[in-house]
Amino acid sequence: MPPKVILEKCDGCKAEHEPLCEQVCPGNLMTLGENKKAKCRDLRDCWDCMSCTKACPQGAIETRLPYQLGYYPAKLTPLMGTNQITWTCVDINGKIERFVIKNRND
């Protein structure tokens, strides 16, 4: 069940129809639900590319692995800076790893 939308944080991008995650999803999977919040229309069709998670301006999307493949509750959170991403990975035993990766030249 890859993208999990944190409903309290999602503001549907305030757009009339297309939130940012819906714009970028390469599989056309994100859409606005009836509550005007983003939702994934078919979790099984997600490629886990994390485009939506990186694009979300509210940090309201979390990418999760299907449980069939990996255990709960590991987390991978990107923090998007101007020219770099700071990733935090927390494994099922609570071990934290951080990575700062440049993603664009100045």
């Binding site: 940090g59 987390k75 923090l79 935090t88």
Partner: peptide, 15 residues
């Protein structure tokens, strides 16, 4: 509002 969202993200990042 933006800070509140970011605070939540930091929490998920164990900060």
């Amino acid at each position: 509002a933006r800070l509140t969202n970011l605070q939540d993200t930091l929490q998920r990042m164990m900060l």
